[in-house]
Each structure stands twice: as structure tokens, then as C-alpha cells.
Amino acid sequence: MKSTVIDIENAVVSYREDIALRGLSLKVRSEEFVGIIGPNGAGKTTLLTIVNGLGKLLHGRVSVLGHYITPGNGHSLRKQVGYVAQVQNIDPRMPISVREVVMIGRYGLLGLLRRPSRHDWEIVDEVLALVGMSHLTWRPIGHLSGGEQQRVAIARCLAQEPELFLLDEPTASLDWKAQSGILELVKQIHDSRHLTTLFVTHDLSCLPVACGRVVLMKEGLIWGEGSPDELLTDANLSQLYDMPISAVVRLRKQTISVQD
């Protein structure tokens, strides 16, 4: 049995009058790939921020990689946790190249006062090759498309050599081709590096095949947990999204027939 790397006990997080997490508990074992699914506002992103120490707990305890998170140890912990957010709006004139952005992933590990060595740059070039971005190494980051920027963000996380990999809607606002490319890449990384991965999405079609367990979230609580096959049924999803799935399918079909 693999060891537990994330242990959340009764976590409560609140943003002013809104309660984002209402006493949530979750355990994740080493090398697991967990998909976190739920409608907008369910608390999925907040769950990731308490795992990497950026969210403030009102109540409860979070242990990550064997350490309880306190306000003081967030920085040292985050060096071991890779985080990919949604596509960011990057100024196209921002004077920073793709290679430099990936190197930022190593800055926490390097620590203050240490400059990147040749070895660090070799790792950066290696992960850029892995995500298929070697040809854009010297481009300004703002000139890349959304899909390319997400590949660079994944490369930045890999350069960090993390023990945990958190992805927060990495495929949101990407076209279908870019989406499937990113999902394939995430699966490939999990297969080859066996990184414990949490993948947040509100869109079921964006759940990677590698996902071994899904956690359904609604209104700040875990609503269901289990293997994708047993949990992702029409009845469950209709209740989770407060809308019959058959209606969603019908609407999609109507849209397609209008376009035809």
C-alpha cells in the first residue's frame, strides 16, 4: 500500500462572507491520479490552494508530504509542489523568453543568492523537449498561443522536479486539439514519472484517461468519491450539476444541427 501524501482533515476556508470549503476531508496516496470534478464555485481551486499552502485555513488540518501546513512553512513546501493554473493573460510585449519562464520553476529550489548553473539550463532544455516546445525556446512568452503557453507551464512545473503535481483547469479556454494535446501530455507525464497528480476540471470531457479516482465536489464539500466508471453515471452527474445530463446532450445536438 502506497503512503498517504495528502491528508486533509475537516478543512474550512472562507472568503469574507462566502464559505469555500465546509469541513472537507480527503486523503491522497503516493502516485495516485485524482480528478476533481464539480460545477463552478464548488471549491475545487480552493482545495488546491490549501494543498500548496497558499490558501488560509479557518479550521482543520492539512498535511502534505509528511508536513502539517503552517503559515510559516508554505514557501519550503511549495518548492516540492508543481502548480499549473488556467491559461493566463500574458502581455505580448513582456520581455521574458519561454526558456526563462521555464527556469522560474527552479528558482525556489535554487534559493536566494544562487544563480542557475549550466546543469539547471540543461534540465530546462530537457523538459522543453519533453513537452514539445524546443522550437519555441527563444520566443517571448507572450507570443505563444494558449495551448503552447500551457505546455510551457507544464514544463515549468517539471523543471521544478516536484513530488506533487496540481493542475487547475489547465485546458479551460483551449480549442479541442490543444485540449487533447495537453491531456495526452499530462497522461504521458504521469505514466513516466509516477507523480501524484490532482487534476481539477468542471468539464467532464477534459478528464484524462490516466485518472484512477474521481472526487465530485459541490458547495464546498465532497459529494462523491470512487472510480470514474462507477461514479460518473448520468444520474450522479445530473444531481451534481443540477441539470439532467440528457438535456445537455440534447442541447449539444441542437447546436450541431444548427451549424450544419
Partner: peptide, 17 residues
Amino acid sequence: KEIQATIFNRNIALSVG
């Protein structure tokens, strides 16, 4: 390097430590 990361994106800089 820390200044470069902070300028580029404060959240990303925070998330890498």
C-alpha cells in the same frame, strides 16, 4: 531572478517557493 519571477507573475513566483 526573484525580481524577474515576481515581475512576470506574482502567483507563479509564489507557487514555486
